[in-house]
C-alpha cells in the first residue's frame, strides 16, 4: 500500500496556484499531466486545487471569476478576470535569478548574444539594475577548463597529465570527463578514470595537459558526486580543530559538521570532514598559530613533520 501523501499547507497550495493560473490563462487548454509535471504536483493535486479555485471569487459569489474546469484530462480556462499575472518577485527570488544568470554567463560555452544574455538584460532592467556593476561574478577559469568542459559535453576521452597533491607526483591517465563545476573558488572535473576504474574528481588547475585520444566513450552509469556537497561524505574521517578569529574563514570555505560558540578569546571549535590527510596538513600549516588540532592527536606529529620538512630546506641554504 502506498502511504497517503502528506497534506499540503494552504499557503503552499495557494502559492502554487498563483503561478499556475497566469500560465494556464495564457494557454487556454492544457493536459492535466503536463501541468502536473511542470508544477511538481500529482495530477490529483492539480485537479483538486483547480476545482477549489473555480469556486472562489468575489461577493456575492454567483459570478465565476475564475472560469476553469477539467474535461477529459484537459484543463480548460475561460476568459480570465483575476490572477492573470504572477506575483512580483520577492527579494530572494530576484537575487537568485540575477546571480544565477550572471554566473551562467561565466561558464564555458556561454553566448554573449544568446537568449540568456537577452533574458538577463530584461530581468536586470525590471529589477532596477541600471548596469552590471551591482552584482558581478568572477569564475576565473584555469587554462584547460574549456577543453575539459567540451570533452564532458561530447563524452570524449582525454589523456591528461595530473599533479596529485596528496602524493606529490604527476601521473598520466585516461579519463572521460562527465561533469565540470566550480565550487569555493576552484574548478573541478568529475570523470570516469581509467587508472582507478571509478569516478574521480580532479582539480582542474592541476590538470597540466589534456589531449583528445580521438575516442568517444559512453559515460559509465557510476553516480557522480554532487557539486557543493561532494567532499562532505559521511564515510570520511573527521578532525576537531580550534580556530582563532583570524582563521574563521575555514568555516566559510570548507564544509563543517559543527561549530561551537566562541570562547572568551573568540576561538571556536569545529568538527570537519577530512577527505585527505594532506589537505588537513596543508591547511594547518597555513593556519599556523591560529589553529590547534585537537583530534585525532596522532595527526599532530604529521603536521609538525611537514613543517619540519619545509624548515629543513631553509636551514640548508
Amino acid at each position: 500500500m502506498t502511504p497517503r501523501p502528506k497534506p499540503r499547507p494552504a499557503e503552499e497550495r495557494l502559492r502554487r496556484l498563483l503561478v499556475m493560473l497566469p500560465w494556464l490563462m495564457e494557454r487556454g487548454e492544457v493536459p492535466v499531466s503536463e501541468v502536473a509535471a511542470r508544477f511538481a504536483l500529482t495530477e490529483d493535486e492539480v485537479v483538486l486545487d483547480l476545482e477549489l479555485i473555480a469556486m472562489c471569487g468575489l461577493p456575492p459569489f454567483v459570478d465565476e471569476l475564475i472560469d476553469v474546469f477539467v474535461d477529459d484530462g484537459v484543463i480548460v480556462v475561460g476568459v480570465p478576470r483575476l490572477f492573470t499575472r504572477p506575483l512580483r518577485l520577492n527579494s530572494v527570488e530576484a537575487f537568485e535569478l540575477l546571480a544565477s544568470g550572471r554566473a551562467a554567463m561565466e561558464l564555458p560555452g556561454a553566448d554573449e548574444q544568446g537568449p540568456l544574455a537577452r533574458g538577463l538584460a530584461k530581468l536586470a532592467t525590471a529589477l532596477g539594475e541600471d548596469d552590471t556593476a551591482g552584482v558581478r561574478i568572477d569564475l576565473d577559469r584555469p587554462p584547460l577548463l574549456d577543453r575539459l568542459a567540451a570533452a564532458a559535453t561530447a563524452s570524449e576521452e582525454l589523456l591528461i597529465g595530473y599533479w596529485s597533491a596528496s602524493r606529490d607526483e604527476t601521473t598520466e591517465r585516461r579519463i572521460v570527463p562527465r561533469q565540470v563545476f566550480a565550487d569555493r573558488g576552484e574548478w573541478y572535473v568529475s570523470a570516469d578514470d581509467d587508472r582507478s576504474g571509478t569516478v574521480r574528481t580532479f582539480r582542474a588547475d592541476r590538470v597540466l595537459s589534456a589531449e583528445g585520444t580521438g575516442r568517444i566513450v559512453a559515460p559509465s552509469d557510476a553516480p557522480l558526486p554532487t557539486p557543493g556537497a561532494w567532499f562532505d561524505d559521511e564515510s570520511v574521517r573527521r578532525a576537531v580543530i580550534r580556530l582563532a578569529p583570524a582563521a574563521r574563514w575555514v568555516i566559510e570555505r570548507y564544509p563543517v559538521d559543527q561549530v561551537s560558540p566562541p570562547n572568551r578569546r573568540g576561538w571556536v571549535t569545529v568538527r570537519v570532514p577530512v577527505a585527505s590527510e594532506q589537505w588537513l596538513v596543508r591547511t594547518l600549516l597555513r593556519l599556523g598559530p591560529d589553529a590547534e588540532l585537537v583530534e585525532p592527536a596522532e595527526w599532530r606529529t604529521d603536521v609538525a613533520a611537514a613543517a619540519g620538512l619545509v624548515l629543513a630546506r631553509y636551514r640548508r641554504s
Binding site: 500560465w23 511542470r38 511538481a40 569564475l139 565550487d183
Partner: peptide
C-alpha cells in the same frame, strides 16, 4: 514559475 519557466532540472554537466 513566476517567469513562466518550467520545473528545475537537477543536473547539469557544467555548473558552478
Amino acid at each position: 514559475w513566476k517567469l513562466g519557466a518550467g520545473a528545475l532540472d537537477r543536473s547539469a554537466a557544467i555548473s558552478a
